[in-house]
């Protein structure tokens, strides 16, 4: 099994990356007729957050914890064309204060990943990927109760380009994505962002995501370091002592590590783990995120390659 999971539940106030955070960020393909699926648990928490650019804590929230269990599946249509889907169930809660946590099933996401080009260059192999995806809420969850809302309620379209260079078992992968976000709707018919809006609809800024990852890519073991940035292209800052709002300018940069191991004696089964730490941010929490998962692969078709 060659699926690999990047955990991007690094998000903090929100799960803007979850649901679309598995294999759309890496340069590994499933072979034709391979099907792999599994579950991943993630635990993310923060005590400090950025109110605009001001880093602070909030004694009325304490530490905000988000947990999730995500189902993910990936299928190789061809060796160079994979599709993948996923959906998480999410729980949030504070450690202090009197605000209620929330929980529910969040967004379903589906991605198409296409390895468009491969060429030997020097000692290594260069590959180019194009990835497109869509995500949309699976339930009518509450978006207007940040930081405890489980998501932002937008339908997103993602277009990602990726370059991968592999020398022996050492890889370097870079990607950039543009996320087109649809508008979101509140339960109330008026709100203030930078002015008074007399509507329940929020014009949600689009976003970009960048990632660099490098490490060892062996047959059974994959271990990489990750540098990831999420930048909201627009939006506004949380004003002093205000609550966060879905269309805030939420940015963050995380560093992390990811390890996946395929069981030698039973190659259908693989386990993985990751850790990500927020090093800078804006209108988001400074989250530390840990995850663990297990995946099982099936082989359809007669002449599957291994």
């Amino acid at each position: 099994m060659r699926i690999k999971i990047f955990i991007a539940l690094s998000c903090i106030f929100l799960f803007m990356e979850s649901g679309r955070s598995q294999t759309d960020l890496d340069a590994i393909m499933m072979n034709k007729n391979q099907f792999c699926n599994g579950l991943q648990y993630a635990h993310s928490s923060w005590k400090n957050y950025w109110e605009g650019e001001l880093k602070r804590e909030n004694l009325n929230l304490g530490t905000v914890t988000t947990q999730s269990v995500m189902y993910m599946a990936n299928y190789g249509i061809t060796d160079n064309l994979n599709i993948m889907v996923g959906a998480p169930y999410i729980w949030t809660k504070p450690s202090a204060g009197n605000m209620s946590g929330m929980n529910g099933i969040q967004d379903i996401s589906a991605f198409v990943k296409w390895r468009a080009y491969q060429k030997k260059i020097g000692k290594g192999k260069l590959s180019l990927y194009a990835i497109g995806g869509i995500s949309t809420p699976l339930s009518d969850y509450v978006i207007d109760f940040l930081p405890f809302s489980i998501g932002l309620g937008t339908t997103n379209l993602t277009a990602r380009g990726m370059v991968d260079y592999l020398v022996g078992k050492i890889n370097l992968t870079g990607s950039a994505a543009y996320i087109r976000r649809g508008n979101a709707e509140l339960d109330r018919n008026s709100y203030f962002d930078t002015e008074l809006r007399l509507t329940n609809e929020i014009n949600m800024p689009d976003a970009a995501q960048y990632q660099l990852r490098a490490g060892y890519r062996g047959k059974y073991l994959i271990a990489e370091g990750l540098l990831t940035n999420w930048t909201t292209l627009g939006g506004f800052d949380i004003t002093r002592n205000n609550m966060p709002f879905p269309s805030n300018k939420m940015n963050n940069t995380t560093v992390g590590a990811y390890v996946k191991y395929t069981i030698k004696q039973h190659t259908n089964l693989s386990i993985l783990g990751s850790a990500n730490f927020t090093v800078s941010g804006r209108n988001m929490g400074q989250a530390n995120t840990y995850s663990a998962g297990a995946f099982y692969a099936f082989y359809f078709g007669k002449n599957h390659k291994k």
Partner: peptide, 16 residues
Amino acid sequence: VIGAGISCSKDIVNRT
């Protein structure tokens, strides 16, 4: 798919 998304207007209208 991407084009369809980008072409939709995201403008919001106040009800008054």
